[in-house]
Design a protein around this nucleic acid. Structure first.
Length: 654
RNA sequence: GGGCCCGUAGCUCAGCCAGGACAGAGCGCUGGCCUCCUAAGCCAGUGGUCGGGGGUUCAAAUCCCCCCGGGCCCGCCA
């Protein structure tokens, strides 16, 4: 049992008491026991009116029994009253403050550990290794990493994995470019002082564009109708301007070599598909070439992720799944499934029949899959008539792998909402093959995309908002501000602080809105560091730190004068800070980082407002100063706890 | 054509899943606050047919139905 602060302890005791008295589930009671809309109603409120009928007790009677139970359990700092059918609880903050005094320097706030620790895999980011991470990935990365942090804090055993999608056309395109140039991409990046993923990203975009133009030119020559021809010529024109743009960004004199090299290849599409087939078989030289290209890009990813303080426990290569026979194993198992069919000559699973016969009649399965009402899908092809496998097939194999290699109870896949259908298909397929528990315990953690005003990203045209660039812009801006506020501060220090502010701004922004909503990332506004932002919280933390620093020896916590903690703002601040562990625990259980973000903003608002009118250091009364010092301690610790979970770095000064 | 998600103040969003006590923040705009703990802050003011219409309920932003608007998805692509 971990240490519980008096607030969490009281909350739990109240939940227990109510649930015993009215005979309702603890979870439900815990949900309904909320902070009321008006302060006069108390610190916590419960709508007992709902349970008057079912329990046969009046609200007053419920209150009396709850109070008895609380007293029995030694929770003597909670008052209960009844108003309009609500039980209103008021905490004796003075008594709580007394309990907390003397704990200076110790950890007071801690996320309560779950009673059911699980082994959880969080798969996130998993960007294709062809170009740098962009803003689209940023939300995925931040959500995935924050989720991981929260689940770990809750006591789960979390395993973070990155799926390297190297079997496919995109990486082959980049590899073809590298091959034509005859370079070792990693060495070249070092030689030219470029970030490795940026180098490959350019090669990918240029190669792709050149091949596309070539293909379109051929199509234009063959087009019979004039309007088709005109449309194609228009597309070619667009691509030519894209190409000109790429030429202007040529990182190391590659452009002409690439153009010439590719022009010597008769049918690039055919070359690519041969490369892909050979790679799937693990043949050289493709094996070394493609792995090399992907590894180069991953190296760049790792640099960016390190800036964001994001780590992975494992990198899973799609190609390895193929080479080690896991994909083949899935196919064999599928063939033994009663739902295996040949569909137009390809090996497939009859998902429509599976849904009809197994999912719909089974309430539990129906609940887990949450099938839309008029849901209809065609059979799922696992292997093409030409014998090659599909992405989905490999994804099924990977799903099994994730559970088997880790012994996971649960897997969260952080994947964009646009892939809902395909994620559902994978889970249905798993169940149809017989992996029912995997299908049930695999969760698609979906989020809407990041939209950029006045901008449409296109990765294959090299027109992406690169995450590194955003971070650089944010850092530069923060640097100016830090310098202005700290004249004469050492260069390195300024840089370090600015970097943390940039990371804080980005990470907070990416998780503060609920994942179901598209996130509008306005670069102009993101650069404005005010608003409900990460830097605002960092600033508040730094402020609290500064006060404690200046208090010096006086920062030792003395028992506060009880009544000194009773003023509305002071007691509200103490309570809001103490609520943080519970909020964090619930946010973790609900997989809702935005709830924690909102809570921290509210805490910071209260603190800043209080700070302005109630000075700490100049407070002459020792008992009152102790209470204020306690508040600063608690707020600083609550922010530290919360920001740590969100991956927003804390700063002692800024 | 079918399905999923979203629609709350000029803008960005909380609240909706598990209905309850006058609908909340921030930004913006207007005005004020640094001989005093960091002004990336604070205070005051401004601003809402909760997309529209029905229904259920003692009670609806929240649940149900219909409609409107926006995004996404429905490949032997990845």
């Amino acid at each position: 049992m971990s240490w519980l602060d008096p607030y969490t302890k009281a909350f739990d005791a109240i939940v227990d008491a109510i649930s015993e008295v009215i005979g309702e589930d603890r979870r439900r009671v815990s949900y309904l026991l909320a902070v009321p809309s008006r302060r006069e109603y108390g610190d916590l409120s419960f709508p007992a009116i709902r349970y008057v009928k079912s329990s046969g007790l009046s609200a007053e009677e419920i209150a009396v029994r709850v109070r008895e139970i609380l007293e029995e359990r030694g929770i003597n700092y909670v008052g209960v009253s009844v108003l309009k059918g609500y039980l209103n609880f008021t905490l004796d903050v003075g008594a709580i403050a007394e309990k907390l005094a003397g704990m200076a320097g110790e950890k007071i706030l801690e996320v309560p550990r779950t009673g059911e620790p699980l082994k959880i895999v969080v798969e996130h980011t998993s960007a294709n290794p062809i170009h740098p991470l962009h803003m689209g990935h940023a939300r995925n990365t931040c959500l995935g990493d924050t989720l991981s942090r929260m689940l770990m804090a809750r006591g789960h055993n979390v395993n973070r994995r990155f799926y390297v999608d190297d079997v496919g056309k995109q990486v082959a395109v980049a590899a073809l470019g590298v091959k034509v140039l005859g370079i070792d991409p990693m060495e070249e990046a070092v030689k030219h002082g470029l970030k490795p993923d940026h180098l490959v990203g350019w090669i990918y975009a240029a190669t792709h564009t050149i091949i596309d133009i070539k293909r379109l030119k051929k199509a234009a020559g063959e087009a019979e109708r004039d309007e088709d021809k005109r449309r194609i010529m228009g597309e070619i024109e667009d691509l030519m301007s894209v190409l000109a743009d790429l030429e202007s960004k040529d990182p190391a004199g590659y452009f002409n070599r690439l153009l010439e090299g590719l022009s010597r290849i008769d049918d690039p599409e055919k070359t690519l598909s041969e490369m892909m087939i050979r790679y799937e078989k693990g043949l050289e030289p493709e094996r070394t070439l493609i792995r090399g290209v992907a590894t180069t890009v991953l190296e760049g990813f790792k640099q960016t992720l390190a800036r964001l303080d994001v780590e992975f426990d494992a990198w899973d290569w799609e190609s390895s799944l193929v080479w080690e026979g896991l994909v083949e194993r899935v196919l064999e198992e599928a063939r033994r499934s009663p739902y295996f069919i040949y569909y137009k000559g390809a090996e497939a699973l009859d998902l429509p029949r599976f849904i009809r016969e197994r999912v719909k009649p089974d309430p539990e399965l129906r609940r887990h899959f949450r099938l839309p009402r008029g849901f209809e899908i065609p059979p799922l092809i696992l292997r093409r008539s030409d014998g090659t496998t599909l992405y989905t097939t490999r994804d099924i194999a990977y799903s099994i792998y994730k559970f088997e290699v880790t012994g996971a109870d649960k897997v969260y896949n952080v994947v964009g909402a646009e892939q809902r259908l395909s994620q559902l298909q994978v889970r249905l397929a798993l169940a149809a093959i017989g992996y029912t528990s995997i299908a049930i315990n695999m969760v698609h953690y979906d989020y809407e995309l990041v939209t950029l005003p006045r901008m449409k990203m296109s990765s294959r045209r090299g027109r992406i908002v690169v995450l590194d660039d955003i971070l650089e812009t944010l850092r530069t801006l923060a640097e100016e501000e830090v310098e202005k506020r700290n004249p004469g501060a050492p260069r390195d220090w300024v840089r370090g602080v600015a970097e943390k502010i940039a990371v804080g701004a980005l990470r907070f922004r990416m998780v503060q809105t609920s994942p179901q909503k598209p996130l509008l990332f306005d670069i102009e506004k993101a650069l404005d560091l005010a608003e409900n932002s990460g830097p605002y919280l960092q600033y508040t933390y730094a402020r609290a730190s500064s006060i404690l620093r200046k208090l010096g020896a006086n920062a030792q916590l003395q028992p506060p004068r009880r009544d000194a903690c009773e003023s509305p703002k002071r007691r509200e601040l103490i309570l809001q800070a103490l609520r943080t562990p519970r909020v964090a625990a619930k946010a973790a259980d609900d997989l809702a980082p935005e709830d924690l973000a909102v809570h921290l903003l509210k805490l910071a608002d209260l603190f800043n407002s209080w700070y302005q009118e109630d000075p700490v250091i100049r407070e002459p009364d020792v008992g009152a100063r102790s209470c204020k010092t306690l508040i600063v301690y608690l707020v600083r610790e609550a922010l530290s706890l919360g920001l740590g979970l969100l991956g927003v770095p804390v700063l002692e000064r800024m």
